[in-house]
């Protein structure tokens, strides 16, 4: 009777698998798998879509290209905006502890709608126009900044830094997220920045 026992075992396995297959749609209504860690990504890539060759020594009238990437891992669709600000070396960055953005005004903003687990990269092209470079006082004044075709008068002074041997500014990118209860975009406590030396060749 061992042959019959074997067939009985096969029938039981097939029966169990079949019942599970039929029950699967109903189980989907009842059982909800746990959601993983929820977070958003914000990053900048260089012109070759790599984390290298970032613009550093900037001169007047040259277009610089980087890619700004945003990733949504919040478990549902999200509405983001990345904002660009220009800071000199002494102006405050966003406060990560208090989750507050930089107090400086936003220059350029770009909005993206992402499905869960979707990532999107968009171009950020910028160029500077320096008003003057005062070698005596070691100050470079940025007259205007053009971002993706929009020209902004910034009139920002950048002072020579003797420690790092340069006249630095930061191109700051902040991530904002739409808050449905407030009905507005709110700072999402994520930022990245490019440090730029405003002296070379100017």
């Amino acid at each position: 009777m061992s042959g019959l026992q074997n067939i009985k075992g096969v029938f039981m396995v097939v029966g169990l698998v079949g019942v599970l297959l039929f029950a699967w749609p109903s189980l989907g209504l009842i059982v909800h798998l746990p959601v993983g860690e929820q977070f958003s990504e914000l990053y900048i890539l260089g012109p070759g879509h790599m984390a290298s060759d970032y613009p550093f020594n900037v001169v007047t009238g040259v277009d610089y290209l980087v890619y700004v990437g945003v990733g949504n891992h919040l478990g549902s669709s999200a509405y983001y905006e990345w904002n660009v600000k220009l800071l000199n070396w002494t102006e405050p960055l966003p406060n990560s502890t208090a989750a507050t953005p930089s107090p400086l005004p936003r220059l350029y903003g770009y909005r993206v709608f992402l499905a869960d687990n979707e990532t999107r990269e968009d171009t950020l092209t910028f160029s500077f126009s320096f008003l003057n470079v005062t070698s005596a006082e070691n100050i470079t004044t940025v007259g205007s900044l053009t971002i993706n075709g929009a020209a902004y008068n910034v009139d920002k002074s950048c002072v020579w830094d003797p420690v790092y041997n340069g006249t630095y500014s930061r191109l700051l990118v902040e991530l904002w997220l739409y808050n449905a209860s407030q009905g507005a975009l709110a700072y999402h406590n994520r930022f990245v920045d490019l440090i730029l030396n405003m002296t070379a060749g100017s």
């Binding site: 042959g3 067939i7 029938f11 079949g18 029950a23 749609p25 109903s26 209504l29």
Partner: peptide, 30 residues
């Protein structure tokens, strides 16, 4: 959602019934 539940219950019952019938038939023949 109740259509899904009915499909699951009826489908599973029919499947088990058919399988049992096949098993009884195969056992008798054996």
């Amino acid at each position: 959602w109740w259509r899904v539940v009915i499909f699951s219950v009826v489908g599973a019952c029919v499947f088990v019934g058919v399988l049992t019938g096949v098993w009884v038939y195969a056992k008798r023949r054996y």
